[in-house]
Design a protein around this nucleic acid. Structure first.
Length: 883
DNA sequence: TTCCTCACG
DNA sequence: ACGTACGTGAGGAAC
């Protein structure tokens, strides 16, 4: 049997630690009734972590009881002089009990004793009973308990890190055994507990004395032999104080507690307590993380709803302002089978699995009637699914998923229930609870379960409309929702449905060529290495390069040697094998991801239908999946050839592509209002050359050589990303000092940019979020973190997000305007792809000139900034040529 | 499932 | 002193 393990936690001290760790975010942690929750949140995370890490069999959280303890009986100033406990902290303490019970832990307190004494007593008992004991506390008082079987973990710097005190660690750190910690406090005192100690003796001196004399008593037994000194005098005068201080610091290991170790068995969460606690505290993310089946098993008090299972339609069913939901079990709505649908509102809700109803004029007409408004969850998914039945959906006025994402970009679950819970609506189950997951995913045996589930989704969409709209309005995001995201969803749907034609036989040809080359390189490498191994395995490759061949190790990863490109490039010249490995990597990537990957996803219409995910990125960009068409190779010629396989759908058509030139730097010029950056764009200068001139002090543009321009370009990139000297130095292969000089000079030459960066970070710290030009928001909970890395990351994000996000907003606006113009002019030209700053179209050759006019003009005038926007275009018979 | 690597803007 | 560029998706290996 596995050994028993007792976890003892000092409740007051970790709560206090937690409170101050999140003190900066105090006002962001409030539940609906105004209760602060930062300490509860922090403690929750600490406890979850320690449970996960230690996997204890027994747990107890000990608390201090009341203000006075037996220690006050002989020293009334014990713990005096402490700052008053903030009321924001006190108000959370009662709920801490609920949290602890919810997590399945026992708690205990004892009149006249401190938590330390309870812990000391139980730790000693458990030690005798051959338990492993772990103590968790926010201060070091408890470290005196450390022994072979007792480890004391103390939180350091906030709450995320802990320092483990074992006898070995204490020896290393102080040169003392655990028991001597109390002697140290006897001599040196402890300011935080107001333990006086001996005048002029601090930790260092105390340790020196204890190394020689072992204990406080030992010091006094030998005091006569000590040399005359001020210290000796103090020691003699304050003998009583020293002995009392030691007594104060000594943890009682024999407190009269009435619980026993074996009563502290721990067997996991108590959802009857935990779920209501999470709900009361608005800890929705924790609620979501709970195993959904557990939650739903628990949450059987869902309110009753009305709905009707139908097999035929009547005119009365179809009103304006209803919610609509079309159910598919797989993620990919281009292919997933439609298993049912529902529509209605809270009063009248209709559910059916009879897809023949999709052919009824009543339904068809209602769907496409713009005046009959609908509310949905995921417009694009719904539209694409209905399109497969030849149905057109019009009049969508609300999309729960889009709205939820705009309100908080981390609220982007594909599951209605999860989203609903974020907004305190719990009367709908997660899909997983109804359909299962993984291999077992499927329709519930009892069809009525699905009917009810679909009806509940309608109720949820219906319910969420008002609170979400109100929140959008309060955040000034109604235009972003109504004028940008909602119309865009429809356009993206059309693009996905249209798809892009792919020349599969071209890909097949490439597959053969690449296979041959890969084989050749493989053999060459095996020969040079003297053995066969898996070239695709970084681990095996590492062993060959760094152990067998003895090449210098440049970088390590968490799990072993790094064999990433930048590392291999530094090894070029060491051995010819490196070049072959690099070539192999490059071609293997093209082969597996692009040639084979794309071949797998070509539909019967010879097209690829990607899906754009509109509610994922934290900046407002789109992402593309199944497959990702936003990362088709272009930088290296080998890979770029993949683009030859992307062709127009008709023989006499062409592909047309237009991309924004330097949109992010233009956006930066606009929002920072930096006069020099603006001037460069207004005067139509080569921006990187212009930066080079200012930063490197070059007078004439002709004198900016390729190298200077390249360096200036890297600096410009760095600026957009929220520059750091290290990042720039890595990118340019220069020293950190030189990189820092570049940055300093840049800020000197572009003071407006510097001001912007400082201002946006300040604002983020103040408000907790940043915004784009069109009020897209990103919350930055880490912006005031104590941890340097975490905080720095948030600061760079604060700088980058308004830039990247505003650029994304602008292209979205341009897409909507272009789509409208193409429709107005009844052009055959079709928008196919969006790649962050680029749009790809196909069109009959004859339309290309007009298309170019429309696209460039619209992109350049989509919005008015204080600098011009510029779009560059190209045309070709394949995507390769059109760039 | 997680890590490493690498493709794009 | 800290250890980094911002935003993504996908394949293959190893667990």
């Amino acid at each position: 049997m596995a050994k028993n393990k007792l976890l003892l936690i000092d409740g007051n001290s970790i709560a206090f630690r937690g409170f101050f760790a999140l003190y900066q975010s105090l006002e962001r942690f409030k539940n609906q009734s105004g209760l602060h929750t930062n300490a509860l949140y922090a403690v929750h995370n600490m406890l979850e972590n320690v449970l996960e890490r230690e996997k204890p069999t027994h747990v107890l959280v000990a608390f201090d009881a009341g203000k006075t303890t037996f220690r006050h009986s002989f020293y009334e100033d014990y713990k005096a002089g402490r700052a008053k406990t903030p009321s924001e902290f006190k108000e959370q303490m009662p709920y801490l009990r609920d949290l602890i019970e919810g997590l399945g832990m026992k708690h205990y307190e004892l009149e006249n004793y401190e938590a330390d004494d309870i812990i000391g007593t139980l730790a000693t008992q458990a030690d005798k009973e051959k338990f492993d004991v772990v103590v968790l506390s926010g201060d070091k008082d408890l470290t005196q308990l450390a022994s072979d079987n007792i480890r004391v973990d103390v939180t350091v710097k906030g709450v995320s890190e802990i320092e483990s005190y074992t006898p070995e660690h204490i020896m290393e750190k102080y040169g003392l055994v655990p028991n001597q910690i109390i002697d140290m406090k006897g001599l040196a005192g402890d300011q935080s507990d107001n333990i006086p100690g001996v005048t002029k003796i601090g930790e260092k001196t105390a340790i020196k004395l204890l190394k020689e004399y072992d204990t406080v008593e030992g010091v006094y037994e030998n005091i006569d032999s000590m040399k005359k000194s001020k210290m000796k005098e103090n020691l003699i005068n304050e003998k009583e104080i020293a002995l009392m201080s030691k007594k104060l610091a000594t943890i009682n290991i024999d407190a009269p507690i009435d619980i026993k170790v074996d009563e502290l068995g721990f067997d996991g969460k108590n959802l009857d307590v935990l779920v209501p606690f999470y709900k009361e505290m608005d800890f929705n993310s924790f609620l979501n993380k709970l195993d959904s089946s557990l939650v739903t098993a628990d949450n059987e008090d869902k309110k009753e709803i009305h709905y009707e299972v139908i097999d035929s339609l009547t005119k009365e069913m179809f009103q304006t302002d209803l919610s609509l939901y079309v159910e598919m079990l797989d993620e990919n709505y281009h292919t997933s089978e439609v298993v049912g649908f529902a529509f209605g509102n809270a009063e009248n809700c209709y559910v059916s699995t009879n897809l023949d109803l999709f052919e009824e004029p009543l339904f068809i007409e209602w769907l496409k009637n713009e005046d009959m408004t609908k509310k949905v969850f995921d417009t694009k998914r719904t539209e694409v699914a209905l399109n497969r039945f030849g149905l057109s959906l019009k009049g969508v006025k609300f999309d729960t998923l889009l709205a939820s994402y705009l309100i908080d970009s981390t609220n982007n679950s594909e599951d209605i229930a999860e989203i609903a819970q974020k907004f305190n609506y719990y009367d709908v189950d997660r899909d997983e609870a109804v359909y299962g997951k993984g291999a077992k995913k499927g329709l519930p045996e009892n069809e009525s379960e699905m009917f009810e589930h679909l009806a509940r989704k309608i109720h949820a969409i219906d319910f969420l409309y008002e609170p979400l709209m109100e929140e959008l309005e309060s955040k000034n995001q109604l235009d972003l929702f109504n004028e940008i995201e909602l119309p865009l969803a429809h356009i993206l749907g059309e693009m996905e449905i249209e798809g892009i034609t792919v020349n599969a036989s071209r890909l097949q040809e490439m597959k053969g060529e690449f296979a041959k080359r890969l084989n050749e390189i493989e053999q060459k490498v095996y020969e040079a290495a003297g053995e066969e191994f898996n070239l695709n395995s970084p681990k095996q490759l590492g062993v060959i390069l760094f152990e067998k061949m003895g090449l210098p190790v440049i970088k390590k990863t968490k799990t072993g040697y790094s064999t990433a490109v930048d590392v291999l490039e530094k090894l070029q010249g060491e051995n010819p094998i490196i070049d072959d490995i690099l070539t192999y990597r490059q071609i293997a990537k093209i082969q597996s991801t692009y040639v084979e990957g794309l071949l797998k996803v070509i539909f019967e219409d010879n097209k690829i239908h990607t899906r754009y995910v509109q509610t994922l990125t934290q900046t407002g960009r789109l992402s593309s999946v199944d497959p990702n068409l936003q990362n088709i190779p272009i930088r290296l010629e080998e890979g770029r050839k993949i683009r030859e396989a992307f062709v127009p759908r008709n023989a006499d058509w062409q592909l047309f592509s237009s991309d924004y030139s330097q949109i992010e730097l233009r956006v930066l010029a606009h929002i920072s209002d930096d006069e020099h950056l603006k001037a460069a764009f207004i005067e139509g200068q080569d921006i990187h050359a212009s930066t080079a001139m200012r930063v490197f002090g070059v007078e004439k543009e002709e004198d900016v050589d390729g190298n200077l321009r390249r360096q200036a370009k890297a600096v410009n990139f760095g600026i957009v990303y929220g520059i750091s000297d290290y990042g720039l130095s890595q990118n340019l292969g220069i020293s950190r000092q030189d990189a820092q000089t570049f940055i300093d000079t840049y800020f000197e030459k572009y003071p407006g940019v510097k001001d912007y960066m400082e201002q946006v970070v300040r604002e983020a710290k103040d408000k907790g979020y940043v915004e784009t030009l069109y009020h897209r928001r990103r919350y930055l909970p880490d912006i005031n973190a104590r941890n340097f890395n975490i905080r720095s990351f948030a600061e760079r994000t604060a700088i980058n997000t308004p830039i990247q996000g505003s650029a994304a907003d602008i292209l979205k606006i341009a897409m909507i305007q272009i789509d409208q113009k193409l429709k107005d002019e009844k052009m055959e030209a079709t928008m196919l792809l969006q790649v962050h700053d680029e749009l790809v179209f196909e069109a009959p050759k004859s339309e290309i000139p007009r298309l170019q006019q429309i696209v460039e003009e619209t992109m350049e005038n989509a919005v008015q900034l204080s600098v011009p926007l510029k779009a560059d275009s190209s045309v070709g018979n394949t995507w390769y040529e059109a760039k």
